[in-house]
């Protein structure tokens, strides 16, 4: 059972009050009509789905009914931070796009997430961002 800190209610509440709503920070293309099939399909369907640190949207469904974001470890399920819509996370997940810039595909040594799940991030659950 998760205890989730809602950044709007500024309280820890039980998991059953919330609904997960998928990956966060996916921007809708500004001009959908101008998208290629590839771009539009990527936007609709393709997801990072990392084994490790992940940013996701949640809805406080039976609370304030507002959307907000959670940074969570998808293996340990540890919640590292919660933050309001429009804010940026302090703990970063590795996105494929970012990886491609730094590492060549040939040398890909595996998608292991090595982002530090720091204590500072944990503390932010208590509402550093909120």
């Amino acid at each position: 059972m998760f205890h989730i800190y809602c950044p709007y209610c500024e309280e820890l509440r039980e998991e059953e009050e919330f609904h997960p709503k998928g990956e966060a920070h996916i921007a809708r293309p500004e001009e959908p009509e101008a998208c290629s099939d590839e771009e539009w399909g990527d936007y609709l369907f393709f997801r990072d789905n990392p084994r490790g640190i992940h940013h996701e949207m949640w809805l406080h469904a039976v609370g304030c009914r507002k959307f907000f974001n959670i940074t969570r470890n998808t293996v340990s399920y540890e919640i590292l931070e919660t933050y309001k819509m429009g804010e940026q996370p302090t703990v970063g997940a590795e996105h494929l796009a970012r990886e491609e810039k730094t590492a060549s595909v040939q040398a890909a040594e595996g998608g292991q997430q090595t982002v530090g799940a720091s204590d500072a991030a944990l503390a932010s659950v208590k509402g550093a961002q909120a």
């Binding site: 990072d48 789905n49 494929l96 595909v105 890909a108 040594e109 998608g111």
Partner: peptide
Amino acid sequence: RMAGFNLPLE
């Protein structure tokens, strides 16, 4: 991801 692409999976 090791092969350099994403899948439409969660």
